[in-house]
Design a protein around this nucleic acid. Structure first.
Length: 466
RNA sequence: GGUCCCUUCGUCUAUCGGUUAGGACAGCUGGUUUUCAUCCUGCAAAGGGGGGUUCGAUUCCCCCAGGGACCGCCA
């Protein structure tokens, strides 16, 4: 077989959601595993709904998660003339015909079929119409002459053999009455012209595949291999779609999910390789295959995404993590000031410990990023008179200390615990709130040490908590 | 309604006729960290139902039920 070539062919009529990303990922992984190429085709023939911003968002999203297409970006609308030419060929070799039925007529038939609870397929009224019988004043659509007898088998690489009676496939329209091509024609012609070997797409395209296979046959083109992957469902068990604002990659990146983590999650959603859960990018490519794709739809699970992200936060190189954090803060939060960089970088070791997302790390690092501590009323409640004197005393004890480390701080805290007849929490929490404005976050000693003596003294001198 | 697809713990999944049905996430215990979170123990949790085939079915076949997708001059 020629080199494997796959494509992802979204329409830029809305933001690319996570389901589309997974389809793209599978296509890309498959082609890379086979040392083949992966192409991106923008199906922008719906002029009304196609938007450049969506096209850009699609490309940006794919790039974010690590997918880049080979070769040139294929813009479907630029190839319309080729599609029309094929329609004319099909007309010539009588695999297609002009249909003069009016929209009203068709709608009426559909309505009646629905009322009788009968399945609707176009009645092929114009199928055998001769040129002389054609009405002169009607702009016809062009329909593909589907097979009427027998059945067709799709040898699906994921689903196995799928057989369907040919009568259930209607004479579908390939050219609208304004002469423009429809999806099934355009997609087929493009896939052929792009020399696609494997069409990997969502399960919702399966019926289209039967239509498209007939076009290949009608044109005597080599039929590519097909793989229909089960859809991703929402928690409610319905297909993920743009309409019910399915999450885009930006929804994940803005809470601080890292691309590799999401890639890993998506890879394992509907695909498996033994019991392996964690796949580096290289491993994804190395192990990906169509056999590992499950047949049933899978549901999106946020806690799993979070935990995958947490895993990456804890295991990737800290320099790399830091770069992610800097980028994240710049885009979604506060740009980290140059003078804070070094401190955050060395503190990452403990800052990352309590984080599932980059957003969590940002929250943990707030006490470093911002010079002024912001207090929440509910946290301030903790600072009663006893707490205030603990803070004051701690600050006083600090003066005699030159180097801040756990060994020097621990005795001080322990003395306070004894003196005030409390536990670590009784001393630690007021200090933590005083220093960071939050009851949650890194360990107390980590906070103090990273802040440095001067800064700790400054913060403990804040009027609000003294 | 028609056509097609699917069905293992709550979720993602392993198993390619013989397993105490395994793992991961979430959940719940207990412990460490003298706070939260980490981390470590442990626990609980599944083959939709009914028929076959077979010495033996989660695994193969059939029926039913449930769920899903499609049924546009959208893509």
């Amino acid at each position: 077989m020629s080199n494997v070539a796959t494509r992802f062919a979204p329409s830029p009529t809305g933001a690319l959601h996570i389901g589309g990303v997974r389809t793209a990922l599978f296509c890309w992984l498959f082609s890379k595993n086979k040392k083949g190429t992966f192409h991106l085709r923008i199906e922008d023939t719906d002029k009304e709904r196609s938007k450049d911003e969506h096209k850009d968002q699609i490309i940006k999203s794919l790039k974010w998660i690590g997918i880049e297409h080979d070769g040139e970006l294929y813009i479907q609308s630029k190839k319309i003339n080729d599609h029309i030419a094929v329609a004319n060929d099909l007309l010539k070799n009588s695999h297609a015909y002009k249909c003069y039925c009016s929209t009203e007529e068709i709608e009426d038939q559909k309505k009646r079929a629905r009322q009788k609870k009968l399945p609707y397929t176009y009645n092929r009224k114009c199928r055998e119409l001769s040129e002389s019988e054609a009405p002169k004043d009607v702009q016809p659509v062009v329909r593909f002459k589907s097979k009427i007898e027998g059945s067709s088998i799709l040898k699906d690489l994921v689903q196995g053999d799928v057989e369907i009676e040919n009568t259930t496939i209607e004479d579908f329209i390939i050219l609208r009455n304004d002469g423009t091509p429809t999806y099934n024609l355009s997609a087929t012609v493009d896939d052929h012209q792009m020399n696609m070997t494997h069409i990997i797409r969502g399960d919702d395209h399966k019926i289209n595949t039967f239509k498209q296979m007939q076009i290949y046959l009608g044109m005597k083109w080599e039929v590519p291999l097909f793989a229909h992957i089960p859809l991703i469902h929402t928690i409610e068990g319905k297909k993920l779609s743009k309409r019910d604002n399915a999450s885009t990659l930006d929804d994940y990146s803005k809470i601080g999910i890292m691309p590799d983590a999401l890639r890993n999650y998506l890879l394992r959603l509907g695909w498996s390789y033994q019991d392996k859960e964690i796949f580096t990018l290289e491993e994804s490519i190395q192990y990906f295959n169509l056999e590992g794709i499950g047949k049933s739809p899978s549901k999106l699970d946020m806690s799993r995404i979070l935990s995958m992200n947490e895993h990456y936060i804890k295991t990737i190189d800290e320099n790399e993590l830091y770069d992610h954090l800097v980028k994240y803060c710049r885009i979604y939060k506060e740009k980290i000031k140059p003078e804070k960089e070094a401190k955050i970088k060395i503190s990452l070791t403990f800052l990352k410990n309590k984080a599932k997302t980059l957003g969590d790390i940002f929250n943990n690092a707030k006490y470093i990023i911002f010079d002024d501590v912001k207090f929440e009323d509910k946290d301030l409640e903790l600072i009663d008179d006893k707490a205030k004197s603990i803070i004051k005393e701690f600050k006083g004890n600090l003066i005699s200390i030159n180097t801040l480390d756990k060994e020097t701080l621990e005795p001080i805290v322990n003395d306070l615990i004894k003196k005030y007849e409390t536990n670590f929490k009784g001393v630690g929490q007021p200090l933590r709130v005083a220093l960071t404005g939050s009851k949650f976050g890194p360990g107390l000693y980590d906070i103090i040490i990273s802040l440095g003596k001067e800064e700790v003294e400054r913060r403990l001198g804040n009027k609000i908590i003294t």
